[in-house]
């Protein structure tokens, strides 16, 4: 008594493969590139200073180091977490490195220790969120305030002047190779490396599974806690890297550096397609989000628009991106 079933005409189960063109048109990144290109062309026509090497380099420098934070945040968001402490922890890395240097420690060792400290902070946050089970938002909010407090306490609220940093060290932040700032080279390497890893490696695939549905991930034999611990630690460690680069670039350590930076970083990731509920996002998209925000800022500055307008406009762009997503997702369901 076999369940014989007449095959329905036209319902063959052969599964089609969409063309690359189809995929590209639908990608978030394509839309962002179009918007950025439009803005770029428009600004080039309006302002004679826009399309100059100096201006483009200044814009690239403005988001290059922040872009490293965007990478860490995007990966953390994909895994389902969030980190509000990125600005403070970056400042803490700067201050720690600077303070150790001023106290006679070799600058390279001081930088390594600063990065080590941020790694430990990340591990502590990872422990509190995965083992103890507190919420990322609350834990990172607390760390954000504590790290900032430590910065101010250690410096008395004044920037540490690091003029005596050796030129080899300053080269990280100020040097150029074939007229391209090293900062931008580092940024591009980090972005390309993480973008490829996120798309291609099995380890980062686990990050997507975890963020998309932690329970289903656990039911697929993925150690969800470890994944989130790792992404939390990675995000903080990249803050350390960024902090050290800033230190070399500015030749000083500013305790109040990066206030409000976390919002900019999260906004860039979200504009680039990352979801606060986890499971989606790309590095390329997030970086394009950061490029867009940075370009809007500098365009407004060139057009002599009041700085107070800038926040309003950037906030509106974020809202527009989220609304766009909301309706796109709704239509699909």
């Amino acid at each position: 008594m076999l369940a014989t079933q007449e095959q329905q005409p036209g319902t063959s189960s052969a599964i089609r493969r969409p063309g690359w063109f189809d995929t590209m048109i639908r990608a978030r990144e394509t839309g962002l590139i179009l918007i950025i290109m439009t803005l770029f062309c428009g600004m080039s026509l309006i302002s004679p200073y826009f399309l100059t090497v100096e201006n483009i380099r200044a814009m690239a420098m403005a988001f290059a180091v922040e872009g490293i934070l965007v990478v860490g945040m995007t990966i953390l968001l994909i895994s389902g977490g969030i980190d509000l402490s990125v600005g403070s922890v970056t400042a803490l890395a700067m201050v720690t490195g600077g303070w150790l240097f001023l106290n006679g420690i070799d600058p390279w060792a001081a930088a390594a220790m600063a990065i080590g400290l941020t790694m430990l902070i990340g591990m502590a946050m990872g422990f509190l969120t995965t083992v103890v089970g507190l919420h990322h938002f609350i834990v990172s909010l607390a760390v954000m305030v504590i790290a900032r407090g430590v910065c101010l306490l250690a410096t008395g609220g004044r920037p540490l002047g690091l003029y005596s940093l050796p030129p080899e060290f300053k080269f990280i932040g100020q040097g150029t190779i074939r007229n391209i700032p090293l900062v931008i080279i580092i940024f591009v390497v980090v972005v390309v490396a993480f973008d490829l890893m996120l798309r291609r490696t099995t380890i980062f695939r686990k990050v997507f599974y975890t963020g998309s549905n932690p329970k289903a991930a656990a039911f697929s034999g993925i150690r969800v806690g470890r994944v989130i611990f790792a992404t939390t630690t990675l995000c903080s460690t990249l803050c350390g890297v960024a902090g050290v680069i800033y230190m070399a670039r500015f030749g000083s350590a500013q305790p109040s550096f990066g206030v409000g930076m976390e919002l900019n970083v999260i906004a860039a990731a979200v504009i680039g397609g990352a979801s606060l509920s986890g499971g989606s996002g790309t590095i390329l998209g997030a970086i394009l989000g950061a490029v867009l925000l940075s370009m809007v800022s500098s365009s407004l500055a060139l057009l002599n628009v009041s700085v107070y307008w800038q926040d309003i406009i950037r906030g509106s762009i974020l809202l527009a991106a989220v609304l766009f997503d909301h309706y796109l997702v709704r239509r699909r369901r």
Binding site: K206, S212, N213, K215, A216, F219, G221
Partner: peptide
Amino acid sequence: SDGLFLDMSIAANVSALDINLISNGMG
């Protein structure tokens, strides 16, 4: 709630139990 990754692709869902099966051995 705990079987599928709804917002991920069919292919990604199918390979979730053991992604090493579709890896080239180098991750």
